[in-house]
Design a protein around this nucleic acid. Structure first.
Lengths: 209, 209
DNA sequence: ACTAACTTGTGAAGAAATTCACAAGCCGCA
DNA sequence: TGCGGCTTGTGAATTTCTTCACAAGTTAGT
C-alpha cells in the first residue's frame, strides 16, 4: 500500500466523527460536499482521502452513512479495543487518566506509572499509580499496545526506550523533544504550549492591512 | 509578509525550546545541523525556516544561542505575557487550569468559565469557576487575548461565537469540529482522541513486509 | 596574507499535498 | 427507454513544502 499522509488520517478520523453524528440522527446518506463542509475542507479532498482506500460511494447519491463509518472504523483500526498505559502521573498524566474521552473511543487505560515514590500507590480514577520499574514485568499482564509519555522532557527518551523494550509500538508523547525509536515504532508528539505559541505568533503577526 | 506555513511556526517553537536548553547549559553558539538533529529535521529545513524572517547566523560559525532565541521569542510574540481564559471546567478544562506548563511559557490563565450551576463558584487551582454569562462583562477587566474552548462538541460553535464577540482573536479548541469564525480569528484544533486514532491506524496498517 | 575547514543563506530542483475538472455512473421520472 | 439532475472517482494541473547544492562569508592557524 502506498504511504498514506498523516494529514489524510487525521481527516479520516474527523470524518468518522461527523458520520457518527449523522448516524445518531438517523441519516442514511451523505455527500462528500456535506462531509467537507463540516470538516472545513473541500469535497475533492474528501473523495481523494477516501480514494486511497477504495470506492465507498455511489455516484449520484453519495455515501451510505453506516457503511462509510464502518469502513472508516476498519481502516483506522477502531474495531478493537486498544490498551493504553500512561507513564508519568503528573498534571498531564493524571488528567489523561481521568479523562473519559479515550475510553469512549475504544482506548482503555490499563495502567499508570511514575517513578516518584510519593506518588506510587496513590489512586487516579480507579488506577493505582505503579512504580516505573514494574513496567517490564507488568506488561505481560496488561499487554498494552500504546504508551502515553507524560514525563519531563529530560526523561522522555529514557522512558521511550523503556516502553519500546516492553514491546510497545505506538507512543503519544507530550514532551517537546524528538524521540529516537526503532523504525517500527510510531510516535505522535502533542504539545499544547507549542500550539499556544502558534496562536501567539498569529496574534503578533496579524496582517495590519 | 509572505504567508508563513503552520509547520514552520511549529518548528520555530521547537527550535526555541532547544535553544533555551542550550542557553541554560551556557553554550554560546549552535549550528543549523545541531538544531536539526534535536528537532528531527534537516539543517536545510532549519535554515529555510529561519530565512523567512531574516539572517540570524554567521557563516562558518553558526548561530549565537542567546541572539537566536531572543529573535525567535520576538518572532513568536513571546516577549509579552498573554492572558488566556478557559471555557469549560470539565476534565480537560480543569486539567489545563492546573497545568503549570503554560504559565512557564508566558501564558497566564486569568479565568475559567462553565455553564453548569453545580460547578460555578468552585475553585480550580486558585481560580473561581465563573458563570459563562459573565464572560462579556468580565472581559473588560481580564482583557484576555486567547480562549481555550474545552466544552462538548455540540456547544463548541456557540462558545466560539461568544468569545469572538468578546473580542478574542485566538482560540484553541478541543472540540473535534470545525469552528466558523471571522477571518481575523485564528483557531487551532487539538484533539487527543484523534491522535490516538492515528496511532491505531499505524498499528493496524503496519507494513507486513 | 593565504589556506583549510566550516557553516550560512538561497535559488533551483524535487517531492508531496491539494485542487481542478470532467467522464462515468446512479436515481427518479415520464 | 431515455433524459435531467446529481455525485463519485481520478488523472492532470497547480500549489505548497522540503531537500539539494553551492557561492559567499567566517574563523583559526601558519
Amino acid at each position: 500500500m502506498k504511504r498514506i499522509a498523516d494529514s489524510t488520517i487525521r481527516r479520516l478520523s474527523l470524518y468518522l466523527r461527523f458520520l457518527e453524528e449523522f448516524e445518531a440522527r438517523g441519516l442514511s446518506t451523505i455527500s462528500s460536499d456535506e462531509l467537507a463542509a463540516r470538516g472545513g475542507t473541500t469535497s475533492a479532498q474528501v473523495r481523494k482521502d477516501l480514494s486511497f482506500f477504495g470506492s465507498f460511494g455511489k455516484r449520484g447519491l453519495g455515501y451510505s452513512v453506516p457503511e462509510l463509518s464502518s469502513r472508516l472504523r476498519k481502516i483506522l483500526g477502531l474495531e478493537r479495543e486498544w490498551r493504553v498505559i500512561i507513564i508519568g502521573a503528573g498534571k498531564i498524566g493524571a488528567a489523561l487518566a481521568q479523562y473519559n474521552g479515550f475510553a469512549e473511543r475504544g482506548f482503555r487505560i490499563t495502567a499508570i506509572y511514575d517513578n516518584d515514590p510519593r506518588k506510587i500507590g496513590r489512586e487516579v480514577d480507579g488506577l493505582t499509580i505503579r512504580a516505573l520499574e514494574c513496567l517490564p514485568t507488568d506488561r505481560e499482564s496488561y499487554g498494552a499496545e500504546i504508551a502515553v509519555i507524560a514525563v519531563p522532557a529530560s526523561a522522555a527518551q529514557a522512558t521511550a526506550d523503556l516502553v519500546v523494550d516492553a514491546g510497545i509500538r505506538a507512543i503519544m508523547s507530550f514532551a517537546p523533544r524528538r524521540l529516537t525509536v526503532p523504525e517500527e515504532v510510531t510516535v505522535k508528539m502533542v504539545n499544547m504550549a507549542m500550539e499556544l505559541e502558534g496562536l501567539s505568533f498569529a496574534l503578533t503577526n496579524r496582517e495590519s492591512a
